[in-house]
Design a protein around this nucleic acid. Sequence first.
RNA 1: GGCGCAUUCGUCUAGAGGCUUAGGACACUUCCCUCUCAAGGAAGAGAUCACCGGUUCGAAUCCGGUAUGCGCUACCA
Length: 490
Amino acid sequence: MTTPVRTRFAPSPTGLPHVGNIRTALFAWLFARHHGGSFIVRIEDTDVARKVEGAVDAILGSLRWLGLDWDEGPEVGGKYGPYFQSQRLDLYHRAAERLVRQGNAYYCYCSPQRLDEMRKEQTRRKMPPGYDRLCRNLSEAERRQKEAEGITPVVRFKTPLIGQTRFKDFIWGNVVFENNLLDDLVLLKSDGYPTYHLANIVDDHEMEITHVIRAEEWLSSTPRHVLLYDAMGYAPPRFAHLPMILGPDRSKLSKRHGAVSVAEYREQGFLPEAMLNFLALLGWSLDDKTELFTREELIKSFSLERVSKTGAIFNIEKLKWMNGVYIRGLTADEFAWRSIPFLERDLPPDVARPLPVEYVREVMPLVQERVKTLLEVTPLTRYFFAENLDYDANLLISKGMDGESTVRALEMSQKRLTELKTFDAGVLEALLRPLAEELGLKTGQLFGTLRTAVTGETATPPLFQTMAVLGRERCLTRIQEAIDRLKRSS
RNA sequence: GGCGCAUUCGUCUAGAGGCUUAGGACACUUCCCUCUCAAGGAAGAGAUCACCGGUUCGAAUCCGGUAUGCGCUACCA
């Protein structure tokens, strides 16, 4: 009987969730779901100074947007709660006290200033920086003396001076560290909050986390955690350190690389399913060809064994391509539905809101295969909504034509269009193709002129469909405007 | 400075000693389709598998060294 898998995502609420954090969450979630286990969200709010208002909501919102549901954590509770570390302070205090009692930890009265100077001196002398263990062997009398001075101590771990600490990582294999390279880390800060190290091992044990899946930057501190588990008499969980996500310059992805929070990608019109798929491929792959996965396929095929060790650069171009693939895969209704918020937000203010839904549904199929993000929908469909077009009259004149012949073509088109009984794409094509020949023009010449007249753009969806959706009245008005524009400019 | 880890087309990656004249995808180029733009189809260019040695009949794959890069080295996570 194997114990059920329990993984956790333990973000600290210090800002908007970064794609790297969310990728970590995704892998932990995938692993749990793949094994039919539980996925837990735990908020590591032990740094009062860096805490950012609203960050928890932003994190939860991003998880929800991607469909990363959690079995235990904020808002849903669970039997291992509370899931905010700031509400579990007693637990950490008890653990710290116990370690002190057992002789595995001690009170340290060194001031931040002393520590700072010590480190500066160490780096100046090219020595490895680390706590010099001044307080490690304080006598009872010395301790009382410091207490009497009113110094609030921190609790430090008494790291073994000799020996090695080893652990097995799912991704990195056997990892060995020399204990004498580790200094005596702080467990409990003087403000009463635990450090990450303490809180993390206490909670992972209390919450019965079986697999700690986190970013590579934690690899170096894992031996400390293993030592802490030992001192507490806990069996350590299994570890998996994920490769990092890099910026184009190969350094850890950060704000200076541009958009990094998933909320920004959402704003920019990326679909959650595309984001999920793309993120999954950053550091993981199934084989040498499959790269489009549904959420279910991801759950089914995910495994830690196939996670790579090397950091991956976040390639936005590929994300865009993938987003385009997902957009094209949407039903027309879904696409329209998802585009509406962007149209409502970005269309010029003089366009009446709310937008007529039926009309939007006619317009959207025309651009569905032409956009890579929902953000691109508005600029490509502006002329379907805005009354006035703004373009250079010269754009009306096709190659091999002049102002005069263009006006003639426009006037002829106008006349024929007026006579039309119905106004759909088929009828328009049947009318316009022969008309080009009649005017002695290539279809491209006539269609180009009409396209500009009717949309103000030189690149649009197919002309006949575009005109059909625009409707006869609007087309005729715009053709008239084009003629006026040409006459004015000549 | 110390410790750790990594290094396959510009990018994401496949590859776990012979199947590899190193495969796929994005981006790029050309062509086809075509009323423009896309989408789609086809083709192409692009990697002496960081470098140097070694093991082996045979190495991108194993070993050692070098270089480069990254991470950690806080009363931050």
